[in-house]
Design a protein around this nucleic acid. Structure first.
Length: 318
RNA sequence: CGCGGGGUAGAGAAAUUGGCAUCUCGCAAGGCUCAUAACCUUGAGGUUGGCGGUUCGAGUCCGCCCCCCGCAA
């Protein structure tokens, strides 16, 4: 089939790569190059990178609604179907309706669960053990259309946003290709979603990474997994930003045994740093920081940090 | 020129008004021990990011340059 692909990040690029093997990708639509990093170096998206490398023409409209020429351009390509995977903009209906067979979306969750902009992170945040990928036909509502296919993926306790994204991308690529074939051949009947069961995710903001020590160590650890890479999880120490680069949950029974003789009030309050960089959390739980980064400093192991910051143990994180 | 923090031994940090460059860890050798990420003793390891200036004397003060990082995006 003749396809126009919409996408931005690595997940999308991975899907595009698989798609190119089986189908004719006429063009790619992504978002404009944006300045990245402290030096504000202009960088193109992973999808644009791949498209440029293999010689597929790329469009980078700032807006699909306001740019009127883009609709005519896309219409002129004569695509059978549009495939959308993590394209950080909402595509207006008049664009979705262009291809003869409509538009298909790759969504990295088991729809109707986790609709919206953070479908990979939110299951991690909730501590779910299973998620998946869904291929749907796009309709007038976001992540709402009938399902062409889906596949479950197991979430390991060690999975983070990064590793889970890779796993989902690996599953998504062949699933999409299969669903497209089945859809084109008429062997797949689109299944309406059970809208009663729909749940929604919200866009992640920097604030979400701020650690609330009143929460349990497991919840904080899940936040670390969900907010991996960006925004990460952080707290403050002596008024300075402290990023938690790595951490582990300690079983509270083990901790209780080792804390015989410790003052009771020290044990109760959350956010207190104990020996070895272990921090008291809510619900009588403990999180050990194993790697961290203080504002303005390089990331380092807890051991190195303790060597130079003797007053860390006994202080309170906020 | 978006705002800000920083560069001192292999790692992390100190160093008061400019005045013997220290501490913790690691490393090496020896000792103790059934044993150890334990403990004791000794030791190696530095052009304090670079260049220039002020000074009797600069990690510290001044100028220029290089590099790292947080925020922001």
């Amino acid at each position: 089939m003749k396809i126009v692909f919409f996408g931005t990040d690595n997940f999308a690029a991975h899907v595009l790569e698989a798609l190119m093997q089986k189908h004719e990708v006429l063009a790619v639509v992504t978002v404009p190059d944006a300045p990245v990093g402290r030096k504000q170096i202009i960088q193109k998206t992973a999808v644009a990178e791949l498209a440029d490398r293999v010689g597929i023409s790329v469009f980078k409209p700032a807006s699909l609604k306001k740019d009127e020429s883009i609709e005519a351009t896309l219409r002129g390509l004569g695509a059978d179907v549009f495939v959308v995977a993590i394209y950080s903009k909402i595509i207006p209906q008049n664009i979705l309706n262009i291809p003869t067979k409509g538009s298909v979306n790759v969504h990295p969750s088991l729809l109707p669960l986790y609709r919206g902009p953070a479908p990979i992170r939110t299951p991690l945040l909730h501590g779910d053990t299973v998620t998946g990928v869904s291929i749907i036909l796009m309709d007038e509502q976001v992540d709402h259309g009938p399902i062409l296919g889906s596949k479950e993926v197991t979430i390991e306790p060690s999975d983070t946003n990064t590793t889970l994204t890779e796993k989902l991308a690996a599953v998504a690529a062949p699933l999409l290709v299969g669903a497209l074939d089945g859809y084109a051949a008429g062997t797949i009947t689109p299944q309406e979603q059970d809208h009663e069961k729909a749940t929604f995710t919200k866009l992640v903001s920097k604030e979400d990474g701020k650690v609330d020590w009143n929460k349990s160590a497991v919840e904080i650890y899940n936040a670390w997994r969900a907010y991996d890479v960006w925004p990460g999880i952080y707290t403050t120490w002596n008024g300075k930003l402290l990023k938690i680069v790595n951490c582990v949950v300690l079983s509270s029974s083990r901790m209780r045994g080792s804390m015989v003789g410790q003052a009771a009030d020290t044990i109760e309050k959350p956010g207190i740093v104990l020996e070895g960089g272990i921090v008291t959390c809510g619900q009588d739980s403990y999180l050990q920081i194993t790697k961290l980064q203080l504002e303005g400093k390089q990331a380092m192991d807890i051991k190195a940090f303790l060597n130079g910051n003797k007053d860390f143990v006994g202080s309170t994180l906020k």
